[in-house]
Write a protein that binds this DNA or RNA. Structure first.
Lengths: 214, 214
DNA sequence: CAATGAAGGTGACTTAGGTCACCTTAAAAA
DNA sequence: TTTTTAAGGTGACCTAAGTCACCTTCATTG
């Protein structure tokens, strides 16, 4: 049987800034949960019972429209926490956002009952929570900027640049219709814009992947 | 000389849920600041030195695009705190959002140096902060929903309904070009859509104001 | 190997919404 | 009272982007 990393080692490597006492509490009270690729960590209307710290994999956060259309917001990576699970957990409320594992993902689940104590007792935790909020808030603001002030081609460029940054690869394994979905556009439009970008030498198109060159 | 309400009375009436000790600390350390209509409370790139609790007036939060175009996000009213001033204050960072007083406004300024203690010592403060984040986060999500999934006429309806709710009057004192600005559209488009709504009996148009009938 | 399905390409068409030019009307200033 | 200015109305036009229909090209699977 292959040995998987312990909670302690995850915390040590991903959350080094946490004070020792806080680490101890998280190790004692957290449980690891595995999600398959494609599995939902959080669904519109679902009630949260824990806060999630991502320790492995990749999670995609998106908003769902009335007709089932999706709208990509941002990714969560190891070392990130789900801001929404924190807020909702604290207030015991439901969320209006979907979180889906895009790779096999592991999350450290922290029971909501612990939130009060953590906030009060551990300064590094409280900073971590505020930091998380701030970052996600800023991401949402960027999203708003893009959809309200930018045209589709600019949004597409931004999207690809973000994929390149977040996934850390020039070979973007994504189809045109997935992009269209994420941007709430349509495949044909995306294909046409991508071709223009290719002509400008910004990328090269292949079946099932895009080589991002900028 | 007319007597203005004391900090204590503001806190008592607007933040009744705060624990007595917290109220005392805020009264001792907060200072009232007055802003004229039109004055900025916060500007893109400005460094925050205090967190602001609104105690009188009305504040409009908006995002600014590259070409100076504005984009309305939400209002702050007495009893609200500026979520952004809290985050930025804590992290000593700059904000990318504009906050402008639309009416003469008074804010209770809480020095950032106090934030740590408040968070740690007073549960009601920490709840208040989380609540503030959550609400603003939700507002941003609604904004995203609107601009990405809805067409202009739906957005206009939503906008007017929100004005009616937030400002608590059926007589909306606003010009067509102001609306166009807030929605990042153009006056002609808004005028045409408003006329259609009038024909449907949802409102009646006048010079400088709109009677909202729904 | 043939067949099926997913990915992608392309032309023709539609439409919401932005832009331009110019007009009228009401209110405030002079 | 006249003048000026801001608010609003309107037709003509343009364009980005969504939609439809149909095609080609791979890759997988029976």
């Amino acid at each position: 049987m292959s040995k998987e990393p312990s909670i302690a080692s995850y915390i040590e490597s991903l959350f080094p800034s946490f004070e020792p006492e806080l680490k101890r509490v998280l190790i004692e009270n957290g449980t690891l949960k595995t999600f398959d690729a494609g599995e939902m960590l959080m669904q519109t209307g679902q009630n949260m019972r824990s806060t999630i710290l991502i320790v492995e994999g990749l999670v995609k956060l998106y908003r769902e429209g009335d007709e089932g259309n999706e709208f990509f917001m941002y990714y969560l990576q190891p070392g990130n926490a789900c801001a929404l699970s924190m807020i909702c957990a604290t207030r015991q409320e439901t969320s209006q956002v979907m979180a889906k594992a895009v790779e096999p993902t592991k999350g450290l689940m922290i029971p909501i009952s612990l939130m009060d104590t953590l906030m009060k007792e551990y300064k590094t935790w409280y900073y971590f929570v505020l930091e998380t909020y701030r970052n996600r808030f800023e991401e949402l603001l960027t999203v708003i900027d893009n959809i309200s002030f930018k045209s589709m081609d600019e949004r597409l460029e931004f999207y690809l640049a973000k994929q390149y940054r977040d996934l850390n690869t020039r070979k973007l394994q994504i189809t045109h219709s997935e992009i269209a979905n994420d941007l709430n556009s349509s495949r044909e439009v995306i294909s046409r814009l991508l071709k223009k970008m290719e002509q400008r030498g910004e990328l090269s198109l292949h079946r099932n992947y895009i080589s991002y060159l900028k």
